[in-house]
């Protein structure tokens, strides 16, 4: 088990380095840039620097920026510097607001975390419960109704459902106010009031996916030979169901961990629709502002969350499935 965890950890570190390198290559070595060129800037002409320098900059200013950012240095030097800074927790400064990217991300993390944790809790509880009941009461009205509900959920894109619900609850019924986000620390009641609709929107699609998956898994497991053995030895139906759930729910752990990891990196669409100042909307803003350090920071952050989620899931899976542990 210990060896297994160490192996996973090493992989996680390698993956993180790969993510950093990829992000670095994409944003620093192949910058989209503004396409403008400054006469007389010579080798100082770097799209990033030109963009940062603002409208009609003097070549000297562009050169200054290039020097300050080290853009005239070879790629590997820039890379080394970037990684070095990163290891000290320095993700650079926003081109747009000049705020340290790290601070911007951490300031916005609570909003994203509120959204992700709340929504994922809802879909986990309801998705799994609906899936179990549907499988155990197969072909009942309850099963058919919830599978229809799930089919609708799987087919509805978040942006559509979100906009419809905003229109309905904010525009018509007036029981929800978009753009009312309050941090939980300042006013928990206002926080709850601002979060319930985004939670439902974000949770619905995944809840549908989870309900269908749990139902399918459980039905499949119920046909396994070891479930027949459990019955043959005279276990009560309750214990037989427990045996089946043990197998059917293990994959849910994997999926949940990964989904949560992805969400913690920012729920771009939901955050944008509901004006939640999270990492997702930070990234969207950064992209429209061509704010490269922020784009870099948010991408990296999201990537690292997925890697951490993978690591946690792998370890959790090993503790749940003995076959993984020993192989």
């Amino acid at each position: 088990m210990f060896q297994y965890i160490v192996r996973r950890l090493i992989w996680a570190v390698i993956m993180t380095l790969l993510v950093i390198s990829t992000v670095f290559v994409i944003f620093f070595v192949l910058p989209g840039g503004s396409g403008r060129n400054i006469e007389g800037a010579g080798k100082c002409s770097s799209p990033i620097a030109i963009m940062m320098a603002g409208r009609n900059p003097r070549p000297a200013l562009v050169c200054n920026i290039v020097k300050r950012l080290g853009l005239d240095k070879p790629v590997y030097v820039q890379y080394g510097r970037y990684v070095g800074n990163l290891l000290q927790g320095d993700m650079g400064y926003s081109y747009h607001s000049s705020e340290p990217v790290r601070d911007a991300i951490f300031r916005r993390l609570p909003a994203t975390a509120s959204l992700a944790i709340g929504a994922s809790f809802i879909w986990l509880v309801f998705g799994v419960a609906i899936g179990i009941v549907s499988a155990l009461r197969r072909r009942s009205f309850m099963d058919r109704a919830s599978m229809f509900f799930a089919l609708v959920g799987v087919s509805l894109p978040t942006f559509f459902l979100g906009l419809v619900l905003v229109f309905l609850f904010d525009g018509r019924l007036n029981i929800y106010n978009v753009a009312s986000y309050q941090p939980i620390t300042s006013d928990p009641v206002a926080w709850l009031k601002s979060m319930w609709l985004p939670w439902i929107v974000l949770a619905y699609v995944s809840m549908a996916v989870y309900a269908r998956m749990v139902r399918g898994n459980l039905l499949e497991v119920m046909g396994e030979d070891y479930i027949r053995t459990a019955r043959a030895k005279g276990l009560r139906e309750k214990s037989v169901t427990r045996h089946a759930l043990r197998s059917a729910l293990t994959p849910v752990v994997t999926m949940y961990g990964l989904d949560l990891g992805i969400l913690l990196g920012g729920a771009v669409i939901t955050e944008s629709i509901f004006n939640i100042p999270g990492i997702g909307s930070l990234a969207v803003d950064a992209i429209s502002n061509q704010d490269l350090p922020t784009i870099l920071g948010t991408t990296l952050f999201a990537g690292v969350f997925v890697i951490i989620a993978n690591l946690v899931v792998d370890i959790a899976y090993a503790s749940l499935d003995p076959r993984v542990r020993y192989s």
């Binding site: 396994e224 030979d225 053995t229 045996h243 499935d321």
Partner: peptide
Amino acid sequence: FQDPFACLHPF
């Protein structure tokens, strides 16, 4: 039963 590989709960 026939298949002892499948008849015991793996977990």
